[in-house]
Design a binder for these strands. Structure first.
Lengths: 147, 147
DNA sequence: CATATTTATATCGTTCACGATGCAAATATA
DNA sequence: TATATTTGCATCGTGAACGATATAAATATG
């Protein structure tokens, strides 16, 4: 074994894990005022793109399992942000749709991306270099999410 | 608001969040055989670098709060991987030390970094480009963890 | 058409994360 | 030296994540 590899500073996963947590924390004050968590915000992003999707499509889009998404959606339904309806064609499906409240949140949260975006701009991450970072992360996700 | 910004594909946090989860999942089969979770493995990395550290130092190194680390360490103590002793100079401190079992895990898990490292090598993330990715993530962490 | 398999979702148990709060020891201040 | 403040850790409650398992509906197979 190469001892250097064991150092925390050399670990990619730890950086991803930390950056992810810290950036999620940056969303917190912007979302909590509206009773939202970050994963719930992700669900809204999916539904704002296309309303009325089955649980499975939402889960796949977020690279999550349904056993994570189901309780999350149940909480969102309780908050009146979405509604869950049995699928008509396929009775196994649960179709998730935005309520009026869920749709209105789109306007209320419209400035979140730019606020958070500005919060991460720094020496090595700029408008110019971000695409390269995105490409690397996408490649990692592709590599790890594949069969 | 710029509508494009609202698309999931344009969100940095979502990529970090997904990449972090998927890469952590890649660690799972390597760690679970030894009864470890990924955050517990991170604690071991910290202690392998320097044994006998107070809770606070471990938490700071991992950018976590003590209310996350304390229960985690209690579970690790129950598993016999570490021991928790009251600090001698400062009675408030809890000094965390490796047990024999905790030290032995270092050898048993020695090949984990290279296995996981190989799992993420892809088109845009190579030995050559990784330092650039590391630098970007470090900058983001620095920017977000600062006062 | 009856049975087997697959699929879509839900439930359960455990372990994080983390905001809020509590408590005792150490340190600062009056 | 009393009292106030800070510091280090622990406890509690809630919401993810996720492996394992369950259940009903749809589909495939005999």
């Amino acid at each position: 074994m190469i001892d250097e590899e064991l150092k925390l500073d050399n670990q990619l996963c730890f950086r991803l894990y930390t950056a992810s947590r810290l950036l999620t924390q940056a969303y917190h004050p912007l979302l909590s005022d509206h009773g939202l968590t970050y994963p719930q915000y992700l669900v809204l992003l999916v539904l704002w793109e296309k309303d009325a999707q089955p649980v499975n499509d939402i889960a796949k889009r977020l690279y999550l399992e349904t056993n994570t998404v189901t309780p999350l959606l149940q909480r969102m339904e309780k908050e009146g942000i979405i509604i869950r309806n049995k699928g008509e064609k396929d009775a196994r499906q649960m179709i998730i749709s935005l309520t009026r409240k869920g749709k209105e949140l789109r306007k209320k949260l419209a400035d979140v991306p730019s606020i958070v975006g500005n919060a991460v701009i720094c020496e090595s991450v700029t408008k110019e270099t971000a695409p390269e970072l995105f490409r690397m992360l996408d490649d990692i996700i592709l590599k790890l999410s594949n069969p």
